[in-house]
Design a protein around this nucleic acid. Structure first.
Length: 515
RNA sequence: CGGAGUGUAGCGUAGCAAGGUCAGCGCGCUUGCUUUGGAAGCAAGAGGCCGUUGGUUCGAAUCCAACCACUCCGACCA
């Protein structure tokens, strides 16, 4: 058992932090609530970016970059938007520092208008769109940006909620409401597809109730995932903004009917929180488990030997193995062997995923723990006994199973790729089974309360969304409506009794306690 | 921001209630030898103004104050 990681059942929050620490994903910064994303964590983010960016481009979007700083006055233009974000904005008020007599620095030269550090970019992008869009021929505008944003959160948690975080925000403008809604739902599908097919994270697609929607949105759609402690995590959102921001920023165009019209806008985003979701959904008491499609290292090879002769035999054997797995790369292990370092070989040039050979002067057991805690999907062990028999030992991170494989059976990278695929599906199935066994139906408010306090997880109920009722329920159970699932049970026309009001309703929602 | 807790080397900690040979220990790290199939053994080393700033005192890791950061519970949120 991992000696540096607290088991999930003892302290889930501590387990989460231990896993991040053991896998070297992130570190604290000197600034409250901000984190340093270390190379191993950032590589996961790069994989997420790569996969999402491909999907954004495939759906017709282009990338651009808007400034970090936004005039304070912009935030006042959309009423709900102010209420939603004003409380958590960091503000730039001065343009320089002056040295004091005692050597300390003091802000000087105050700005005429304070600038806020973007908590999200609807306002500044709306401002620019107003200048760029003149005619229906200019539409749609389909822009995404990858950037950082800052929200001065009260309480932070690595990856799940940090004061500064990395994300992408798509902002589109359309001629008609129907197109905007179509775009909103298209991107929701992109997110769901990405979460399930890349992160192996099963998600529920749904709509937020009015009380949970984005400040300034007409409708907010989301994907919701379930973590291993039975709490929900919002993993991505897609907003139909209607004409709210068009009105606020005067984004008008001359329509086909020769009249001035307001555009219909959308915005959608996912953040580095996805890394937190991935950690919480898949990892175990031994440490990180990474979905194979975002794992920076897909396989770690650990040689085992006593004598120099054995070492040579084992390394020769590994060379043969690598020749099959990494045919395009220069497989020489010479320099890594000499330096007693970790040799890193390009396994997949598209995804930039590596195979490593751990040639450090350390004991095999240490190396096994090292790569296991980093969540590497597969480890290969090659010792003198294996070389004699022409085999090696393959260790699966998912279930920690061992498998003896003939070198002769490894003819190409496809051998490993098929295993990575199988692991992806097994990981997804495991998470999905967990979610399904943690999703319960309740027919009354009392039953829901009982489930929430005794078991957690998702609770599916008939419920008529209502601000006051939702506030009361949150107060009493800590649970909120995570979403109104897109897939309503039955044919969508069935009807039940709202567990709170007792009135008939056609809406089934999912309640859960959330991060 | 309210409540509770924590802060001593990269990590984990002893010492603190009775200020003074009090800066220790384990892991990790470095070097050497023996080892090497899931966290090895022996030996020799390196590493800390005890979170920060003030105060009390002849003397502060220890007492007092303020501040900072982190963890947990609330409120807020991707």
């Amino acid at each position: 058992m991992a000696k540096n990681i607290k088991p999930r059942k003892d302290d889930y929050a501590q387990w989460y932090l231990d896993v991040i620490k053991a896998a070297s994903l992130a570190d604290y910064s000197p600034v409250r609530g901000c984190m340093v994303i270390k190379p191993d964590g950032y590589a996961v983010w790069e994989a997420i970016q790569r996969e999402l960016d491909t999907r954004f481009k495939a759906t017709g979007h282009v990338n651009a970059y808007f400034p970090l700083l936004i005039p304070q006055s912009f935030l006042t233009k959309e009423a709900e938007h102010i209420d939603g974000f004003a409380m958590e904005c960091a503000i730039v008020t001065h343009s320089k520092l002056e040295k004091q007599a005692d050597g300390t620095l003091k802000p000087a030269s105050p700005l005429d208008e304070p600038l806020i550090i973007r908590p999200t970019s609807e306002t500044i992008i709306g401002h620019m769109y107003a200048q760029w869009i003149q005619s229906y021929r200019d539409l749609p505008v389909l822009i995404n940006q990858w950037c950082n944003v800052m929200r001065w959160e009260m309480r932070t948690r690595l990856f799940l909620r940090t004061a500064e975080f990395l994300w992408q925000e798509g902002h589109t403008a359309h001629e008609t409401e129907a197109e905007a809604i179509e775009e909103t739902l298209r991107m929701l599908d992109v997110y769901a597809d990405f979460a399930e097919n890349v992160l192996a994270l099963p998600v529920i697609k749904g709509k937020k109730t009015d009380s949970e929607k984005f400040p300034g949105a007409v409708t907010t759609y989301c994907i919701e995932a379930l973590m291993q402690d039975g709490k929900a995590l919002q993993a991505g959102t897609s907003h139909h903004l209607g004409q709210n921001f068009a009105k606020a920023f005067d984004i008008k165009f001359l329509g086909r009917d020769q009249k001035q019209q307001l555009v219909h806008t959308t915005s959608w985003g996912v953040s580095t929180r996805l890394i937190g979701a991935t950690i919480m959904a898949h990892s175990d008491d031994e440490g990180l488990v990474l979905p194979p499609r975002v794992a920076p290292t897909v396989c770690a090879i650990v040689p085992i030997y006593k004598t120099d002769e054995e070492k040579q035999q084992v390394l020769d054997f590994i060379q043969k193995l690598l020749a099959q797995l990494v045919p395009t790369a220069n497989n020489s292990l010479e320099s890594a062997t000499q330096k007693q370092s970790v040799a890193s070989l390009q396994f997949n040039t598209h995804t930039n995923q590596k195979i490593v050979v751990d040639l450090r002067d350390a004991r095999p057991g240490d190396k096994q723990y090292h790569w296991e805690q980093k969540g590497v999907p597969f480890r290969i062990e090659v010792g003198p006994r294996d070389v004699q028999q022409g085999v090696f030992v393959l260790k699966h991170r998912l279930d920690r199973a061992k498998e003896t494989v003939n070198l002769a059976d490894v003819a190409s990278p496809a051998w490993l790729n098929s295993r990575l695929d199988a692991m992806h599906h097994a990981l997804f199935d495991r998470a999905k089974n967990f979610r399904e066994s943690s999703t319960r139906q309740a027919d009354s408010y009392d039953e829901m309360k009982k489930i929430l306090t005794e078991q957690g997880g998702f609770v599916s109920v008939w419920f008529e969304p209502d601000r006051t009722a939702e506030a009361k329920i949150k107060d009493e159970t800590k649970a909120t409506v995570r979403c109104i699932p897109m897939e309503q049970s039955g044919d969508g026309t069935s009807e039940g009794v709202c567990i709170y009001s007792g009135k008939p309703t056609k809406t089934r929602v999912v309640f859960a306690q959330a991060y």
